[in-house]
């Protein structure tokens, strides 16, 4: 079975292949018209805000003390590192971004930022964020940040995304690392609790993205990205969404079951986990194409992750952060 959906437009990857060679070389001689806002867009600010939030939770719930300015520095470096990997992603994926309605207006496919500029920007920020985190906080968290950038830019973007329908399952690890980096910034180590925080985001990613992929199937098909619905069909994807959600719901409750959190977190995780399962069952049972149910699951999955982490922050981290600032 081909991994690429029939009729898909599979071009050579990479921003340099976005335009034909003659026009590309001529464009290199043209002075840049990129504004600061275009470079900020390369950082994927909305993704960055979620990364900062989950890293803050990892940092706040970690045992031990950290100076608030050190905590701020760690969050800044994690945010910049996440933005850098976003810029590298936009450089490499410019050719497929151009044919997808959701991404066509990004700075590189829109012609505002040249591919080479996006690459240089991403590499520079990657280097600065990792070295600064290592020098000012600790090298364990810096190593984790470097691995996260490498995983997202190379393993996910350059390899998995265009080669396997399991792309977002394995690639989801990149989005799951930030709370672990936050934890490591405080403790200088990694233990079971941050691994749980990692696992929650890791198992949350497939139902979240596959719900989107079902109702954006046309976009992914035109771009030649072998998302699961394009390769294995809607019915199989909906079954996978249900199975991953059945794994996710108890995993979300596990920090409470293992005694890391209070009953408040337990109650919120049980209720929101049950809603996730109900929505996943609706996705599974709704008559194809199940767009409505998928949109509901996609929207609620964002709220689900936010609620779990927000309650964790309120429950475990908030008091700790205030105590550290007061100290």
């Amino acid at each position: 079975m081909s991994l690429i959906s029939e009729g898909a437009n599979v071009g050579r990857p990479g921003g340099a292949n976005l335009v034909d060679q003659g026009r590309y070389e001529a464009a290199l001689d043209e002075p840049s018209i990129a504004e600061v806002g275009d470079y900020i867009a390369l950082l994927k600010p909305r993704v960055m805000s979620l990364v900062v939030f989950t890293a803050l939770v990892g940092l706040a719930v970690a045992p031990g003390s950290v100076h608030p300015i050190t905590a701020f520095t760690a969050l800044l470096c994690i945010a910049v590192g996440a933005g850098a990997s976003g810029a590298l992603n936009m450089w490499y994926d410019a050719d497929i971004d151009k044919v997808m309605t959701r991404t066509a207006r990004r700075p590189v496919p829109a012609g505002k930022v040249k591919p080479g500029e996006a690459l240089a920007f991403g590499l520079t920020l990657s280097g600065f964020s990792v070295v600064t985190l290592g020098l000012l906080v600790n090298w364990i968290s810096a190593a984790l940040l470097a691995f996260t950038i490498f995983f997202y830019a190379v393993i996910y973007t350059m390899w998995l995304k265009r080669s396997t329908p399991q792309n977002i399952v394995i690639g989801g690890a990149a989005g799951a690392f930030p709370p672990m980096i936050g934890w490591a910034a405080v403790t200088g180590s990694v233990s079971l609790e941050p691994i749980l925080l990692f696992a929650i985001i890791f198992f949350w990613t497939p139902p979240h993205f596959w719900a989107l992929a079902i109702y954006k199937k046309g976009d992914y098909g035109r771009a030649g990205v072998p998302m699961l619905p394009n390769v294995a069909g809607d019915a199989h994807t909906r079954l996978q969404i249900l199975l991953y959600t059945l794994l996710l719901a108890p995993l979300g409750v596990s920090p409470w079951m293992l005694g890391f959190t209070s009953a408040l977190y337990g109650a919120v995780s049980v209720v929101t986990g049950a809603i996730m399962v109900l929505l996943a069952v609706q996705v599974y049972r709704e008559v194809s194409p199940a767009d409505r149910a998928c949109r509901h699951l996609f929207a609620f999955s964002i709220l689900y992750l936010f609620l779990l982490y927000a309650v964790l922050l309120a429950d475990r981290g908030w008091g700790g952060l205030i105590a550290r600032v007061a100290a």
Binding site: S32, A34, E35, V36, Y39, T73, F128, L136
Partner: peptide
């Protein structure tokens, strides 16, 4: 205009980096 705005952004970023290292 675009080049000036980029130059200002780079200058601000470098100042922030220096201040951050100083405070830390």
């Amino acid at each position: 205009r675009a080049r000036r705005s980029r130059s200002v952004a780079i200058a601000v970023s470098l100042i922030v980096l220096v201040v951050l290292f100083y405070i830390m």
